[in-house]
Computed example of a mutant assay.
Amino acid sequence: MLGVLAYAELTAFLRLAEDAATLAPTLTDRAELSDLAAAEYGNFRLLRDRLAALGVDPEEAMAPFVAALDDWHAQTRPGDWLEALVKAYVGTGIAADFYREAVRRVDEETRAIVNEALAEEVRSRFVVERVRAALAGNPKLSGRLALWARRLVGEALSQGHRVAAARPALALLLVSAAEDAGVLASADTDLVEIGRLFARLTEEHGRRMSALGLVPGP
């Protein structure tokens, strides 16, 4: 889990820095997005250092997840400034929700570090202000951005399945499929847990969409 999250933060830093340089319409916007990029890099360092403290090579821990995360970014490259903002908020948010679910089953120190890395108050405020201002000026943008957000989530779920298939131990963290002494839970229990998981993810996604002034959609 720390490996996939560390690489997610590293790639988020790189992509946000690129979007700031190429898509930001003003110097102020460029500076704001650059601040977000710097925060992502700080999060990466926290996670990298935690891996090292656990005696794990960060390079080796991240390597299995490079292809899936790189593919997600390649398939969701924003076409303009507003798409970049929605991706920074909605796309990254749905991934963070998965990590928050998984981190419930790890040790307290690691959980605290991961939750610190996933804090999104600054990102939320900046993105919500910019997107809402754009929608107020041009309400017709709402449909396009809502479709873009749904695409981001769809691609994120697809790559999430890919990661879970490649790393079953990570999937077990999400659904609590392992009980005491390593005995597997029943299939019915797994289905209930998965249902609850996706209900929580859907609720959080709807909250973010509403905060942006967008319709969550199906």
Rank of each mutant, 00 (worst) to 15 (best):
L51T: 03
F98A: 02
I94S: 03
G137T: 08
A53T: 04
G93H: 05
S142C: 07
L69Y: 11
A67M: 09
A21C: 11
E129T: 09
E120L: 09
R100A: 00
T22S: 14
T11L: 15
A38G: 10
A112N: 07
H73D: 15
A21L: 15
D80W: 11
R151C: 04
D29P: 11
A136E: 15
A119S: 10
L141T: 01
L47T: 00
V128S: 03
G93S: 11
D70T: 10
D70E: 15
T76N: 13
R123Q: 10
E59A: 13
D80N: 14
V86L: 05
D57F: 08
T26S: 15
G137S: 05
F126W: 12
E120T: 07
P58E: 12
L118V: 01
W72N: 03
T110A: 03
S34H: 06
L46M: 13
A53V: 05
P139D: 10
A61N: 10
A134V: 07
R45Q: 14
V56W: 05
V131F: 07
V114I: 12
R104Y: 00
R150N: 13
P139I: 03
P139V: 03
F126D: 05
D49M: 06
E60G: 02
E83K: 01
V86I: 05
V90K: 01
A146V: 05
T110P: 02
G91C: 09
E101F: 07
D29C: 10
A61S: 10
G42R: 10
M62A: 12
A24C: 13
F13C: 09
G137N: 07
L36D: 05
V122E: 15
A88V: 04
L54V: 02
R111W: 00
W81Q: 06
